[in-house]
Design a protein around this nucleic acid. Structure first.
Lengths: 196, 196, 196, 196
DNA sequence: GATGAATGAGCCTTCATTCAT
DNA sequence: TATGAATGAAGGCTCATTCAT
């Protein structure tokens, strides 16, 4: 007799939750934790302010959830790099292009802000304390070493070069310069850092 | 009756104003506009909250003043590069080291945040609308061209290469990674972007 | 086409309405007007939140309805005392036991809260303004006087003694002390107030 | 050079804190925890809403502080009873009159509400879990026994009789019936419970 | 000039109420 | 009829700003 069955309701709930997360991602990424008003997220998601709280207990929880899920996603993507087709150079290039892609940009922007900003919920701070910046970098070290063996990459300490490289990549994508004159540097140019 | 004459009072005022700006710079740079409470600035400057308002009408004005003065300072510094001793490569290298220096870092961090963040007073947003990122870059183009003529720098469109280069430098210094494993990339490595 | 005829539907409606009132009584009595969330009533009645509004226009109306009906019920019960079997002493004792009985307790608790609490809808406040505490007491005065004539009750102003007595009885039953050491005072002890 | 010295400031702070507690006591006692809006307390104290938060971190803390201090005060008063002049009967009578006094009334009302109401901060609930209603009663048992030995009080289990007696007294003073016809029962009448 | 108490607008959050199904 | 998702007004709390001293 129920107007919608349980499965339909669950699906609606999941979709709505996903919409809220997408909206929150966009706003948090641009404005940071404190600078983001729940009303802005609500407007971005085209829903009322109150509704957010049926899906997330608080602004803090919404933010944390986002960060945790994005971190996990990033980890999966980095792990996956070694299974991409092509040489190590092509694998890293592929990853870089992916990171700079419009669709993934917000995710990395937000992670970056969450890591750098001081005005972030304590539990989020703790996530990054336990995971050093370059923690995820280790997943790429084997790929890089293979590239060094095939002389695609320049010699030198792998973790160090990779860390520098991704420091640059990540900081670049927080720039939002699409509409400006030259856009982001070509990936090929960026990769000079690794290839000399 | 007055124990201090007008000139001394003015000097005290100026010093106090400067202290407040220094404190504000530090806190704004780390926490952004919205994330910064006036009470934090007061504490950083070791004064009472109310006193700030004797020197600046509002948080917004304090922030704007800071940005405007830092922009002017940056402009002066860039203009001065061509008068530095040494070759164009050495001049740019010198500038870069200066930017990454601990003492100047906050200034560039703050400018960077002010330019990127969305939660910033409207009049500050307007400053950057009228001044494209690479507006200041034009000041360096003559130096770069001289370096190209002497083959210190790689050929290519000067504004484009310089823009990419400083995009990277500026975004790097917002990272605050002193305490981490590898620190910032060596300036020499960064300049590969310009020299190939 | 309809599987139930109008009469059956009406009966269901009435039963449902009654269930909601019972649930509301329990929750309002324990938590007061402001402290009671509609969601708690819904849960207590094992129905959805929205459904309550098919039967009552608002929380306020639900509360008022409850109070009015309970007041009427109380009035009927007090009126009925004189027709109970036994002496005046036994009649009053019987009434007292009835009031302290687990099943009737919530009703008196709620009336008591509605009368004392300040955070109650205005129209409920008005009910009690027009009806002094001891308004209902008058119904018992004849019984009491009969008891005085038969020397069951001590001499003294009947309304005054009865008011004091029921002030005590009613305030006692708001105590909810079942789980504590001594429970409520014996009715016999309480009635010393009336018998000296 | 400071306009007010530290001692003066501390005194102002203490007075203000006390004013807020007095106002809060009055409003909480009448309206309960949930039913009390901070704005009402502010109005009662003739200050702004925000100022309360310079003295108490939250509504919850204000409430808890109040309860804890009142409990401690009550304990002291009960302990003191045995040192009052007069016979045990007179000592208890004195205490009772004290409790029913207009000035102390709110304190007992609030304690009573805090103990009975369900919508109260968790830490307050815990205070009463660890301290049974009649926990404080034990302080009076020696006095009562002395009164039994001198035949001022009726025989019977002291804790039980005292508990019943104070259950009645406390619930009476929550009644707020000053303006009504008969006021509260005479203390002498109440004490019949103890003297038979 | 300097302090910190005081104010009140605005943000996060809750919950009575409405609405689509 | 029944459900629970959705809304928005209002309350708790923060913090930029003002003010008395």
């Amino acid at each position: 007799m129920s107007p919608l069955n349980r499965q339909q309701l669950n699906q609606i709930r999941d979709e709505r939750r996903e919409e809220i997360k997408q909206a929150a991602l966009k706003v948090f990424a641009r404005r940071g934790y404190t600078g983001t008003k729940m009303s802005l997220i609500a407007k971005e998601a085209s829903i009322s302010e109150g509704l957010i709280y049926r899906y997330f207990n608080s602004k803090k929880e919404l933010f944390s959830t986002l960060i945790e899920e994005l971190m996990e996603e990033a980890r999966r993507e980095l792990e996956h790099v070694q299974h991409l087709p092509g040489t190590p150079f092509e694998q890293i290039k592929n990853l870089t292009e992916n990171m700079l892609d419009e669709n993934n940009k917000y995710a990395f922007m937000l992670i970056e802000r969450a890591r750098k900003d001081d005005d972030v919920p304590e539990n989020v701070t703790r996530i990054f304390e336990h995971l050093p910046t370059n923690g995820l970098i280790d997943l790429l070290v084997p790929v890089f070493i293979k590239g060094q063996q095939s002389s695609e990459f320049s010699p030198g300490e792998p973790r160090k070069l990779l860390t520098w490289y991704f420091t640059i990549v990540i900081s670049l994508l927080t720039q939002e310069q699409e509409d400006e004159e030259y856009g982001l540097p070509d990936v090929e140019v960026l990769m000079r850092i690794l290839t000399k």
